[in-house]
């Protein structure tokens, strides 16, 4: 169940950032938990494909992280979309 599609009816603009393609990255991720009023943190590490999607205006940018080498225990996929500002890319300043 690779999580490589972001379903939305919002205006979305896909793009590709060649400078980031193939780079290792970590994502301090997470989100709201359905059925609760709580949020949860999840950590991922993997390789950026370079693909991104901008949602809405002002643009809310998400990058696709694949070939995960770190993911929450039991996470069923091998890919995750990560919020740009929660992504830490190897070789780029924090």
């Amino acid at each position: 169940m690779a999580n490589d599609s972001l379903p939305s009816t919002m205006a979305t603009v896909p793009g590709f950032d060649p400078a980031r393609a193939g780079k290792s990255a970590e994502c301090d991720g997470g989100g709201a938990i359905v059925g609760t009023r709580y949020a949860g943190r999840e950590e991922f590490a993997g390789t950026l494909t370079g693909e991104y999607v901008d949602h809405g205006d002002p643009p809310w940018r998400w990058y696709l992280l694949k070939d995960l080498v770190r993911r929450p225990e039991g996470y069923p996929g091998d890919a995750v979309w990560c919020l740009a500002e929660n992504l830490f890319v190897a070789g780029e300043p924090v």
């Binding site: 169940m1 999580n3 301090d28 991720g29 069923p76 995750v80 919020l83």
Partner: peptide, 11 residues
């Protein structure tokens, strides 16, 4: 609000 930081599964 909880702005997501990684995307949930869409199943």
């Amino acid at each position: 609000l909880v702005l997501p930081a990684s995307a949930p599964d869409a199943s």
